[in-house]
């Protein structure tokens, strides 16, 4: 109950600090592993999770005013990534793993091939003077792809 109140308080007494500082930005990447290579740690290449499209038309943007589940889920995953970087929690790691697995099964079944496991990592992108720098800051546990959704 105390925990819920702690989460509720910023809503009823908000601070309204939108975009006050443009902090280093997390990126989410995942890699697929095969059962034979899980122990050795050998992975296929790291892929960006849900890369943004090259271009969106105004009509597509307008449509997203009413139907935007993937984007809102991606924003939630970024929140989970930020929580992991501030104070790692099992919940945030579970949420990211669960949603990557669900996305792969639903939309990218061909990508998984013979892969049996999944791992994700977080990169931080930030500007140093005029150049962008990337830094790997977190590796998740290795999760079997067969992991079922908790209900």
């Amino acid at each position: 109950m105390r925990h819920i109140l702690k989460l509720l308080l910023p809503a009823v007494i908000p601070s309204w600090r939108f975009f006050d500082v443009i902090a280093p930005s997390p990126r989410l990447q995942f890699a697929l592993l095969h059962s034979a290579t899980v122990s050795s740690g050998e992975k296929s290449e790291w892929r960006e999770f849900r890369p943004r499209p090259a271009h969106l038309s105004f009509l597509q943007m307008l449509g997203r005013m009413f139907w935007n589940p993937e984007r809102n889920e991606s924003l939630f995953l970024i929140s989970c990534a930020e929580r992991i970087l501030q104070q790692p929690t099992q919940h945030s790691e579970d949420e990211i793993l669960k949603r990557i697995i669900a996305e792969l099964k639903a939309n990218h079944a061909g990508l998984t091939g013979n892969a049996t496991h999944l791992q994700f990592r977080l990169l931080l992108v930030q500007r140093q003077d005029s150049r962008l720098q990337q830094q790997i800051v977190f590796h998740s546990r290795i999760q079997p792809l067969s992991a079922q959704e908790k209900t």
């Binding site: 975009f19 500082v21 443009i22 930005s25 997390p26 990126r27 943004r52 499209p53 090259a54 271009h55 969106l56 943007m61 997203r64 984007r71 991606s74 924003l75 970024i78 992108v125 930030q126 500007r127 962008l132």
Partner: peptide
């Protein structure tokens, strides 16, 4: 500079363009 950063490297822009 901050708004340039939002577009350059934050997670917010919906497309690469």
């Amino acid at each position: 500079r901050a708004l340039c950063d939002v577009f350059q490297f934050s997670t917010y822009p919906v497309s690469e363009s």
